[in-house]
Design a protein around this nucleic acid. Structure first.
Length: 282
DNA sequence: TGTCGCGTGCGT
DNA sequence: ACGCACGCGACA
C-alpha cells in the first residue's frame, strides 16, 4: 500500500483534465487498481472521478467539483452506450450488491454535480469502458476510449422508478478510432459461412431475440473482445440487468415505441435503428 | 451463474 | 473521522 501511494505520487499526484501522459486512447487496464496507481481514475469503486473543492484554486473560472473521468461497466440499468454517444447515469441510489438496481432517488451532488459542471466550459471527460475478459486476472478489462464532452444533463425517472440524473456525452472528434471493441457489424451482408468473417467475436449480439442473427466482428483488439457488458433487446443496447416488461395488451405500436424498457411489443422494423449498433461491448 | 460481504482512497 | 462507491474474490 505504501508502495502504491509512492508510485501514485511519482506518476500523477494531481488530477488533471484531459489526457494523461503516456496513456493513449485504447490503453488497456486489467483492473481498477491499475488505473488508481497511475492516477488515471483514482477510485477503485466509483464510476465518476472528479476534482474536489481543493482544486478550485488551480482552475479559476471553473465550477467545482469538476469531473475528469468516468467508468462504464454496464452495471447501471439506466445507461445507454452507443459508442460515440453515451447516456451515463449519475451516482447514488444504487444497490451495489445483489441485483445492482436503483433503490433510491439520486441527488445532484458529488460526481453528479461534477459532471454537470463539465458542461459549462466544455471540459472533456476521460471515458473508460469495462469489459468481461477471460484473459484478465480479474476477469475484466478496462479500456480508455478517449475524451468525451458532456453536452447536456437532465433528471429522469429510471427503469426502477427512482430519480436518476442522466448525462449525454459525445466523443470529441479528431481522436483515434475506438480501438476497444471496434466492432464492425456485418448486418445486411450474408456471409457464406461464419468462418468467413475475420475477427468474429459474437455470432448474434441479440442472443436469438431477433429473427435474424446480428454477428459482430472485431478486427482491432488483440485478442478480439466480445461484447459482454451489455446485452441487446430489439437491437437496442442496454445494461445487463434491464428486464423486458410485459407486453402491453392491445398495443399497436408496430415498433414505434421501440425502447424495450417501455414496451415489450417493440419490434425491429427494417433498417430503422434508433441507436447505432457499431459498438458491441460493455 | 448469482449473491454476498469485505475492501479502501477520496471528498466532505 | 466518516461515509460513499459501476470491485473482486469467495462460496454455494
Amino acid at each position: 500500500m505504501y508502495k502504491m501511494l509512492e508510485t501514485r505520487s511519482v506518476l500523477n499526484p494531481k488530477k488533471r483534465v484531459g489526457d494523461i501522459p503516456g496513456i493513449k486512447v485504447g490503453h488497456q487496464f486489467y483492473s481498477r487498481a491499475e488505473m488508481v496507481v497511475v492516477g488515471f481514475h483514482s477510485h477503485w469503486l466509483n464510476g465518476i472521478d472528479y476534482m474536489g473543492m481543493a482544486y478550485k484554486a488551480d482552475y479559476k473560472d471553473y465550477q467545482f467539483p469538476l469531473a475528469v473521468a468516468i467508468v462504464l461497466s454496464g452495471m447501471y440499468e439506466d445507461d445507454l452506450d452507443n459508442a460515440d454517444e453515451i447516456v451515463y447515469t449519475g451516482q447514488g441510489g444504487h444497490n451495489l450488491t445483489g441485483d445492482k438496481r436503483q433503490i433510491k432517488d439520486q441527488k445532484l451532488e458529488r460526481g453528479n454535480l461534477a459532471l454537470k459542471h463539465c458542461i459549462d466550459r466544455d471540459v472533456p471527460v476521460r471515458v473508460i469502458r469495462g469489459h468481461e475478459c477471460a484473459n484478465s486476472y480479474t476477469g475484466k478489462i478496462y479500456t480508455y476510449d478517449g475524451l468525451y464532452k458532456v453536452v447536456k444533463y437532465w433528471a429522469d425517472k429510471g427503469i426502477s422508478g427512482f430519480t436518476v440524473y442522466k448525462y449525454r456525452l459525445r466523443r470529441v472528434p479528431g481522436q483515434p478510432m475506438l480501438t476497444t471493441n471496434q466492432v464492425q457489424f456485418v448486418y445486411g451482408r450474408v456471409p457464406q459461412s461464419v468462418s468467413e468473417l475475420r475477427g468474429m467475436v459474437c455470432e448474434d449480439i441479440t442472443g436469438g431475440q431477433e429473427n435474424y442473427p446480428i454477428p459482430a466482428t472485431n478486427l482491432v483488439d488483440e485478442p478480439p473482445v466480445p461484447p459482454s457488458g451489455y446485452k441487446y433487446i430489439n437491437s437496442i443496447q442496454v445494461a445487463k440487468n434491464v428486464k423486458l416488461p410485459k407486453a402491453v395488451a392491445g398495443c399497436n405500436c408496430k415498433g414505434s415505441c421501440i425502447d424495450p424498457r417501455t414496451c415489450a411489443c417493440a419490434k425491429l422494423n427494417g433498417s430503422d435503428f434508433p441507436y447505432v449498433e457499431r459498438d458491441g461491448g460493455r
